[in-house]
Amino acid sequence: MPLLAEEVKSRIETAEPGIAMKVFRNSILLEKPEDLLRAAAFLKSAPDFRMDYLASVTAVDYLKYLESVYHLYSIEKKTGPVVLRVRVPRKDPRIPSLVGLYRGAELQERENYDLFGIVYEGHPDLRRLFLWETFEGHPLRKDYVQEDSEVLEAADIEWLDRHGISSPKEVRQHALELRKQGKRAVAEKDGKEGA
């Protein structure tokens, strides 16, 4: 049974004054990220909500800002979801972590950190989840530039030389030229390569 966001919002407002909120699409947008912990703690403990299950922590890149979306359910009351949204700037995005309240947020926050670069403050172990430690960038952000996997770069040529593998002359030449121009071989939308 879904809850109406307007009702939830007014309940939060009376119980925890000072949290700026906006309702759209039956979801509650918290204007300030630092209010998230208070709102979630209220929803978890309030006797007529008892939102004891955090089903998902996801993130969206809206180009102007990043958004983290939380879906809360109540197993006890068999209600939900209550959708909370938090917006942060794309540069230096920081959101308080919900791991203290919901242990299940741990891996999902790590996933969002991995793919969107959102830093969840207070997370006990914020490392990349899917990608490796030395990976650069956050691939689900819309401005992520993907490598062109058909074109070898200077680093590849160096690696091949170190392992005694021959590579065609033109490929080698092209990689050196790219390095001279300070470019990476990247995939562009129209299929052309360039920086």
Partner: peptide, 10 residues
């Protein structure tokens, strides 16, 4: 940093 090094074995 962006994927596998090398991208393929020629």
């Amino acid at each position: 940093p962006y994927g596998l090094v090398p991208k393929y074995n020629p």
